[in-house]
Every structure is written in C-alpha cells, then in structure tokens.
Design a protein around this nucleic acid. Structure first.
Lengths: 383, 383
DNA sequence: TTGAAAGCGCTACCAG
DNA sequence: CTGGTAGCGCTTTCAA
C-alpha cells in the first residue's frame, strides 16, 4: 500500500496538474517528486511534499515554536515575526489543522445537523451559525439528515470522530443512540427550532404549536370559521406535526368545529404538494373558507391551484402559510404567514455555543438553557 | 419585520465573546481562535476524558493495532474482532479522525465551495456530491462564498488547513490567489457549473451561454420576436452573465433586433427582483412580447407582476426562466425553462473526484478532464 | 522573547 | 493473524 515516505495518494493529481499548468513535460510516474514550481525555491528538501512548519522555521532561522507563536498571534518580536511571515509567504505554507488539533487537544470544528439544506429556513440558520462562528476560526461540519432520525444518529457518530467543540441539532426528537452519543461526548449541544421539554443540553427555538394557534386566532378574527389544515403525510417533520397539533388545539379552544385536516405528501411537504392537498381538502369539505398550511411552500402550491380552479384568494378562500419565505412576499397574492427569524436562530445558537465554550470549567453556569425565539403573524393579502 | 438578534444573553461569558467578535472583525490577518480565553483545560476527572484506543485495547486484551484493524475492517480473527467490538461498545469509543489523518497522512475531507447554500440548485449539487462521497467515508467541508471571490479565496485557504483530499469549486472565475493556493496544494480540483476555457484541473458543467442561446431559438420558433432579458445588476453571478451574453449573441445571430436588457438587483437575482425588473422592461420597451430571465426565481417574480398588472402569461407576454426549480412546475402558469441536472453535477463531480483519488493504481484511467452536463429547454405554459 | 523536549491518538511497517 | 516500534506535524510545558 502506501509508503509513509512517499505519500502518493494525497497528491495523486500532481502529474496531471503539472502537465496542464507547467511548462516542463510531466513526469509519468505517480511519484510527486521532481521540481516544484513554488516560486524560486530550489528543492533542497529531500521531498517535494508540502512545506511543514519546520521548513518555515529553517528558512526564517528560528525554531518551530516561534513559527507556531506567530501563527497563533502570541507575542513575538516584531522583527522575528516579519521574517517568519516572509518565510510563510515564500513557501505558501498552510498549517495542518489536524496536527494542531491533535496536539492541542482541541479542534476547531462545530457540527451542525439540519433536516434539509435545500430548505431556505435551515440554510438561513446555517448561515447565521456560520457568520457567528467563523470570526472565531471555527469551521462548520454540516450534515443533512433528510428528516431521518436514524441517519441523524449515523451523522452524529461520524462527526463526533472529528472531536467537534460543540454540536447543533435541529428539533427535539432524536434516537436513544443519538442522545447517548451526545451525552458521552460531553460537548455542548444545542437543539434548534423547537423548545424541547427535556433538552439534551441547550435549546434555541420556539413553540411551533403555539405559533400555529396564533394563526388560528388570527384567521378567526378575520372572520374565517371553516378552517382547514394541510400537513405532510409522514411523521418525519416533527415541527410540522407540532403546528398541526396547535391548529387542532386552537380549533377546539375557539369552538370552531371539527378540524379539517388533509395529510398529503412525504415530508418535508413542498410546493408541489400544495395543489393536490388543496384539491383533497375541497373535495372533502367544499365549504372551507380558509386553509392553513404547514409551510409557505405548500401554501404557495395551494394558491396556484386556487388560480387554476378559478378561485379567488382570499375572496373565495383564504390561504395562510408558515415561515415567511421569499415566495410569500413575491406571490400574487402575497401570503399571510408566520415569520420566524431563521437566521437569528443560527446566530443565537452560535453565540450560545461560543459562551458555553468559554465556560467549560465553570460549574457555576446553569446547565440548562433555553432561548426563545420570537415569531409574528404577518398579515398579507392571502388571508 | 424580522427581529434582529438581541445581543444580551443571560450569561456572563457573553459580553466577553461579543468583545472578542468585534476585535476580530477588524483584524486584517486571518487568525484562528487567537483570543479564546480558555487558558487552562481543567483536568478534572481522568474518567471524564473520552476513551482512547489504548483503553479499548486494554479491555479487549489486545494491542492497539488490533483495535485499529478492527476499525479499518482489516483481517482479524473473528473471535478477537468480537471481543474488540464489545469493548468498543462498552466504552462508547469513537476513534479520533484527526489523529488517524495525521498518522496515515490522508484525511477524509472533501472541500466544496458554492456561491450560496440557499439556492436550491447549489444545495442539490451539494446533495449529489454528498451522496456520492459519503459511502466512501469522505466528509464534506462545505463553504458558502456568497458570490464573493475574495471570500472564496479566504475559504479555500481555511479549508486547505484540513488537508482535504480534493476540492470542488463553483464556476471558472477565481482570484489569482485561489488558483495559486490550489495549484500548490496539489490536490484534485473540480470546477462545477461551467466549462472553463482554462480549467485549474477538471470541470463538470455546461455552457451557460449556449443554453441561453437555445432558449432564444425556442422563443423565436414559438413566434416571439421582441424578446427581453432580465439579469442581475452586479457582475458577481458569472453564470448569469454568461446567460446574458448568450442571449445577446443569439439575438444578433437570429436578426431579432437590439437586445432589450434590464439589469436590476444584487446577485444572485431572486424572486423579489422579478417584479421591478419586469416593470422596468415594460417601461422602456412596452411592446416586448417575451421575457427571458436569468433564473426561474426572477421569472416567477416577473409572472406574479404580470398578474398584478393584469397581463396574461403567455397571451400578453411570454416569460421563460432558467434552472427548472420547483417553482417552475408549481407556478400558474407553469414556467418554460432550461432544465439542468444540478444533483447530477454534484454526483458526477463526486465520481470524478473519486476516480482521481483512486488513480493511485497507476494504470491511467483515462478520465475526461471536462465533463459536459446536458441541459434541455422544457416547454411549459408560460412561453 | 525564544528554544528543546515531550507527547497528542492513531496507523505504517515489519517482525514474530 | 498479531504486536512492538516509530513517527505523522503540531502545541504544550518548562527552561534559558
């Protein structure tokens, strides 16, 4: 297999790259030897492997430690620092983070798991996290669970191998295995987008059920009484289920009659599920005067289907969404929805994680922390 | 509106973190975790530290090497393997990937850079990559360049610290620094979503200009003559610019008169840019009979604006998009567009990367360095 | 302010 | 099939 002294694999593209970009004819052997075109450096190294900290140290005429200090921003004499920096630039040195992590016992990774990257609210959350953590030199390990708790466990296990400093999950539902892995890892954990009754560690989110109840009340105030709800058919989207539950509770609380629930389509329910779900609803309860949707995506699909059926929104039927996605603003009619600060969930999760990293040794800090995120019903044209 | 983050968290550590953040944001030298104040790892319980491979070895009564072999799936006597596995389960042992990477000289990382995670085509590409690479134990390092080439360079530098096995970028436009970093790193590089004239290494994509030209021809065949184009105002979205260029070329080639171009909104142009851009177009060229948009997002916004203006699509004005996003299928009318297999770009990039990693086996797998992805004009209701 | 030595946890290598 | 040894590239610790 691979020889330690001739690390072929990581540089297997070498000859090809040289053939393309360098003037001299490429060496056909897979050995990454030969002259490198790294500036004017003559290869005095026994190997043409990427430069190491010791190379920098030698060029700058200092010890490895001094190079390390320059890189870490510790105090070094200005003149020395200058020489080291020049050597770094000259060699194009890039420090090996894995070695650093191993040596210091502390990685720069933060693991994040979201149900879907394609969903703009979760990608916004990731952006918020990233923007908060990046300035601290932390690197996100992003995982897409695809709304699958077993896959989530597999991803958690896989990510734990990189010794992340902390981890952010979505939702409060996890396998027992996931919980165990997390507990044993003893790193700070944040659950996002929900407010679990028993959080693993910390939580940043809101009550999806309450938000849905607020929307029911809003619709009632606007005079709607025969209110339906379009949800996904599967139980994978727990937050969607919470919204459904909130709808059912509030329908009862407000004395608005039997809930009219259509469950259609695999989670996450998307634009394309809106149309058939609306059809099903109107077939079963033709006198429905308002429809709540588990997300703006399906609300949009439903509205488009109303157009196709010649129904006017909201005159003939009102439609409300959830999430305040861009489509809610651009759609004609604009969509009444519940606005949630997805980016803020990410950035506040990031801050929470940062603060928990700063208090690793502190036994004084309360262990359980829940951060509630605001949401608002946004009244627009559709309801 | 969305509520901004309230910076005040009920924990003492927070204000310090805030201060640290500010300090960093003005620092011209990219520094990793320089100001973290965790000065001493409090070595509390020795039992608190996670189990190591030597612990597993001790419990199982074997050497570390045997544990390592079990983990790597190398040949080990079944009975021994069983004992080791039990020890692993008992301790909840998770191998340290950083140590493994350092020791073997080979990481399991693949770096990916996309302009935006929120854009469904790029998140689909990431999904395709992930699905292809994950079974091989490779872990994605995902970066969001935000359509910013300088940020891309910073991200590349940062990711190179983790010694990724290979890297996938979006587009053919990069800073000189990025190109240098990549060439020096000597790892396989794939540029996606475009077909660069001078690829850094490999490429998987298609000609955005040609695709746009095909759409012009399609519109001409359908009888449209006064065709406008809605593009973003900034030059950040190079693929969008390519489409614009293709439109201009084909308008000329087909003798369809002066191009009617509206450039509006920061890139990436999104749903909300469609409406004002359409207004601008119709103000300047009121007799326009068809509009090509740089993406389905703006096409959707434009169509909604047509509804608001009482214009029928396509009877009064045709609208075409690009990308075949879900909104194109769900919108009423459904949107004529150019379909690109975004997921396929990811999975084929993944395969290309895998094969270039596997090229250790000497015998040159004659890999095509440029892989062309198919696209199709999809005729729907809107044009 | 700088340097030398001692590992971090794991795997390659070669003996047994 | 299994084990001992010797590092991987870096940071910690302590001494100069």
């Amino acid at each position: 297999m691979l020889s330690r002294c001739q690390p072929v694999l990581p540089y297997s593209a070498d000859s090809r790259i040289q053939a393309t970009f360098e003037q001299h004819s490429g060496n056909p052997t897979p050995r990454p030897m030969g002259t490198t075109r790294i500036n004017d450096r003559v290869v005095s190294d026994p190997q043409a492997s990427p430069p190491r900290m010791s190379d920098v140290a030698r060029i700058a005429g200092v010890s490895k430690m001094t190079v390390s200090r320059v890189l870490a921003g510790h105090s070094v004499a200005p003149a020395t620092r200058e020489r080291v920096q020049q050597a770094i630039d000259k060699l194009g040195y890039v420090a090996d983070a894995a070695a650093g992590a191993l040596s210091s016992g502390r990685s720069e990774f933060v693991a994040v798991l979201v149900p879907s990257l394609a969903s703009s609210n979760f990608s916004d959350t990731v952006r918020g996290l990233s923007a908060t953590l990046e300035p601290h030199g932390l690197q996100l390990l992003i995982g897409d669970t695809d709304y699958d708790l077993v896959r989530e466990e597999r991803l958690v296990r896989s990510m734990l191998r990189y010794q992340p400093r902390c981890i952010a999950l979505t939702g409060s539902q996890h396998t027992e295995g996931t919980r165990q892995l997390l507990q044993r890892s003893r790193i700070p954990v944040v659950e996002m987008w929900d407010l679990p009754a028993n959080p693993i560690d910390m939580a940043v989110g809101f009550s999806n059920a309450r938000a849905a109840r607020e929307m029911v009340r809003y619709l009632k105030e606007r005079g709607y009484r025969k209110i339906g709800f379009l949800a996904g058919a599967s139980d994978l989207d727990r937050r969607g289920l919470e919204r459904l539950k909130g709808y059912q509770q509030e329908m009862k609380a407000q004395g608005l009659g039997e809930p009219r629930v259509i469950r259609f389509g695999e989670s996450p329910i998307t634009m394309s599920h809106g149309a058939p779900a609306l059809d099903a609803l109107l077939e079963q309860w033709p006198d429905t005067d308002a429809v709540m949707c588990v997300s703006d995506m399906s609300a949009f699909g439903a509205i488009m289907q109303c157009h196709r059926r010649g129904l006017s929104v909201p005159a003939d039927i009102a439609v409300a969404g959830f999430g305040n996605f861009e489509v809610a603003v651009c759609c004609h009619p604009t969509i009444t929805t519940v606005s949630v600060d997805a980016y803020g969930i990410g950035s506040r999760t990031g801050k929470l994680l940062l603060s928990s990293l700063g208090s690793v040794s502190a036994q004084a800090v309360p262990q359980r922390r829940k951060l509630t995120i605001d949401y608002t019903v946004i009244a627009r044209e559709s309801a």
